[in-house]
């Protein structure tokens, strides 16, 4: 409980780090196909790598030509952005306003986690109070579980409670 905030912050940072680099396929062509959308007339709304239409085939040929001409992955993607605008990218860039797209979900989870922690602090009764309120049969429940037949008792108790 004491380090809960740090653990949550750690999880948040790790999750952001894990999300920071895309897990794209090994080939450069695959990387580019994954990074841009198909811009066919039918407005299929698919990532290029997932599209089989005529336009996607032409686009692939175009990318291969650009790769053969010595352009790098970033340069090829930039040519697409120059031609079609930012909408051609399959995911928001990680800068400026778009950074909000990436950070917000994790920030919400972090905030939610802190909220739950706060709620639990309020909801959990102080130890003495809890023990005092608990009937004798219930307070002995946990210690019983450690014994050989503990599981049977726990199961029976839980099933009884479920069925009641």
């Amino acid at each position: 409980m004491k380090h809960f905030r740090f653990i949550l912050a750690g999880i948040f940072i790790v999750a952001l780090c894990l999300a920071s680099n895309p897990a794209w396929s090994a080939t450069v062509l695959g990387d580019i196909e994954n990074a841009v959308m198909c811009k066919c007339d039918d407005k299929c709304g698919k990532v290029l790598i997932n599209c089989n239409c005529d336009t996607s085939e032409k686009t692939r040929t175009e990318i291969l030509k650009q790769l053969e001409s010595g352009l790098t992955k970033e340069q090829i993607i930039q040519t697409f952005v120059d031609k079609y605008g930012e909408t051609v990218l399959s995911a928001p860039t990680k800068e400026g306003f778009n950074l909000m797209a990436w950070v917000t979900p994790f920030a919400m989870i972090l905030g939610g986690g802190l909220g739950i922690r706060k709620l639990l602090q309020v909801w959990i009764k102080p130890k003495g109070e809890a023990t005092a309120e608990k009937p004798a049969s219930e307070s002995s429940e946990i210690s019983k579980e450690d014994s050989l037949g503990g599981y049977s008792n726990r199961l029976k108790n839980e099933l009884d409670r479920l069925e009641s």
Partner: peptide, 27 residues
């Protein structure tokens, strides 16, 4: 987010599978 981006920046962007895979997989 594309609608939000268009409303705020006037730029329509795409949020496709790479975004969801990177965000939703760790969660």
């Amino acid at each position: 987010f594309p609608i939000l981006s268009e409303a705020v920046r006037g730029v329509k962007i795409t949020v496709g599978p790479p975004f969801y895979n990177q965000v939703n997989v760790p969660i």
